[in-house]
Measured scan of single mutants.
Amino acid sequence: NQASVVANTLIPINTALTLVMMRSEVVTPVGIPAEDIPRLVSMTVNRAVPLGTTLMPDMVKGYA
């Protein structure tokens, strides 16, 4: 099973992502692959992402 990116904290809308905000976890449904974490750093989220939420491609500006 592939690990996905999961919010390690509440990420407010329009926040630039940092490494400490994200962790990898095997979850269903599958979200952004964990190997993309380095690429996500400094990208911003377009909605509030609660703790434990899987990051989906449409949640990160410029990812999809």
Rank of each mutant, 00 (worst) to 15 (best):
G31S: 02
G31V: 02
V30Y: 11
R47T: 15
P50S: 07
T28Y: 15
S4C: 04
V27P: 00
T28H: 14
T54S: 05
N8D: 13
N8W: 04
I37N: 01
T54R: 03
G62I: 04
T28V: 11
S24P: 09
P33D: 06
V60P: 02
L51Q: 14
I32A: 01
R39N: 10
P29I: 05
Q2P: 15
G31T: 01
P29E: 05
T9W: 09
M56C: 03
A34N: 04
S4P: 01
N14W: 10
M59F: 12
V5Q: 01
E25L: 09
N1P: 13
T53I: 10
V60I: 11
A16W: 06
V5E: 01
E35H: 15
T53A: 14
A16L: 14
N8A: 14
L19V: 13
A7P: 01
N1H: 10
M22F: 05
N46Y: 15
I11R: 01
K61D: 11
S4G: 04
M22T: 02
E35R: 14
L10C: 05
V26K: 11
A48P: 07
L55V: 09
L19K: 10
V60Y: 01
I37C: 04
G31Q: 01
G31W: 03
R23I: 07
N46F: 06
V60Q: 01
V20T: 13
L17C: 02
V30A: 15
Q2D: 07
E35L: 12
N46L: 13
A16G: 08
Y63V: 04
S4F: 02
P50H: 12
S24F: 07
S24H: 12
V49G: 01
P38A: 12
N14Q: 09
L10Y: 13
L17P: 02
M43W: 06
M43A: 09
V30C: 03
T54N: 02
V20M: 08
V41G: 01
E25R: 13
T54K: 04
P33E: 04
I37R: 09
M59W: 13
N8S: 11
N46S: 13
M22Y: 03
T28S: 11
D58E: 12
T54A: 06
L19Q: 15
N14S: 08
